[in-house]
Design a binder for these strands. Structure first.
Lengths: 197, 197
DNA sequence: TGCATTTATACACTCAATGTAGCGATGCAG
DNA sequence: CTGCATCGCTACATTGAGTGTATAAATGCA
């Protein structure tokens, strides 16, 4: 990585750090992009050079995470069912989130703000929708004979829908992080059991 | 309904009509709220008295539709499985959408704009998320012994996730409206089949 | 008829987001 | 090492969504 990229990465991190700190201190709505930029000693324009929207500063690592899931689906194992392949992909993404976002405190801030700030919630849901499309496409490519596009979308949508709904419910119940993760990973099976008549 | 409510309803409809027309003519982004209000001979401020956001003008009927689904879950029938109850609720909501939105052209405009305009998509997803929570809660109330909150959320999330993902995929495939509806109604069963290992 | 409530308006304002032009540092080819 | 192109950043101006406040007018009701 050249000097240029390294500097760019540092300013990006500075913006994330300043944003999370200010959101904690003053609340999301009461923090302006101008304040975030100023706290990172940068111009407002620079903020939007790194993030398309104010919400995106909280969802920085989502793109590579989806690619992780797509890659997992690409490595289909012999005799593996679509359900197991999806479970592997979901497991990889959840593990990545736990590993990378938890230490920085980004995960905590995001979890709290997604629950309270409609704008953040909307943006996350949008990201998840595009991720879901990418995963469905990858699943169909991995099982070209068993799945048509609509079926692949249905299965993927069901699995991810179960996972995210379970996460929200578990968090609302006040369960500790490891119980939340367990609920997420077990959700597709629970859903399949109940959905099968 | 008093004269007051009737008038309010008429201005609301005038705003929706003007918005849909202008979106068709000039595109979503290139249409401002001020233009919509002017076309309906109203002030900009009045627009936001009826709709919280610019996107909401396209999602006007979503709240009563969700209540329809919640009501359907409330009328649990003896011996009916959660899956069947959910299917009934989803069927009711889809039928309502077909009956009420198709004639006005609202459905067509919304479908097109959800596919192309990120802001509209984000807002719709957010609405669906809150709807999903309400439905999960209703399902849990209908099956207090069989389902805990997390399981109810997982099943509901899976069912609705399957339905909406199937809808998106079917539309992307260019299927005609009745095929899209069929794909939506069949999606939970397809997903359950593939998810069950 | 008089009073309270509700709907819509006018005006002023904040802030997210974009367009454009320019400056300085970095990377790279000769 | 030098000249040139590219890149990250800034300054400035602008658009447009969304909000707060005060107010007029219409409606419902006593």
């Amino acid at each position: 990585m050249g000097l240029r990229e390294a500097k760019k990465e540092r300013t990006r991190e500075a913006l994330v750090e300043a944003a999370v700190r200010l959101f904690e201190e003053n609340g999301y709505e009461r923090t302006t992009v101008a304040q975030i930029a100023a706290a990172a000693q940068l111009s407002t324009r620079t903020f939007f050079l790194h993030f398309a929207t104010k919400e995106d500063v909280l969802l920085a690592n989502s793109v590579p995470r989806v690619e992780l899931g797509v890659a997992a689906l690409g490595e289909r194992r012999s005799g593996e069912s679509p359900a197991r392949a999806l479970a592997r992909a979901i497991g990889a993404m959840v593990a990545d989130a736990s590993a990378k976002d938890l230490p920085t405190g980004l995960a905590a801030a995001r979890t709290r703000l997604v629950a309270t700030e409609p704008a953040v919630q909307a943006r996350l849901l949008q990201r998840m929708a595009t991720a879901q499309s990418a995963l469905a496409e990858a699943l169909r490519r991995a099982y070209p004979d068993e799945l048509d596009p609509v079926s692949a979308a249905a299965v993927t949508g069901a699995a991810l829908g179960a996972v995210s709904a379970a996460a929200v419910a578990a968090l609302r119940e006040g369960l500790p992080p490891e119980r939340v993760r367990a609920a997420m990973l077990g959700a597709p099976a629970v859903a399949a059991f109940h959905l099968a008549e």
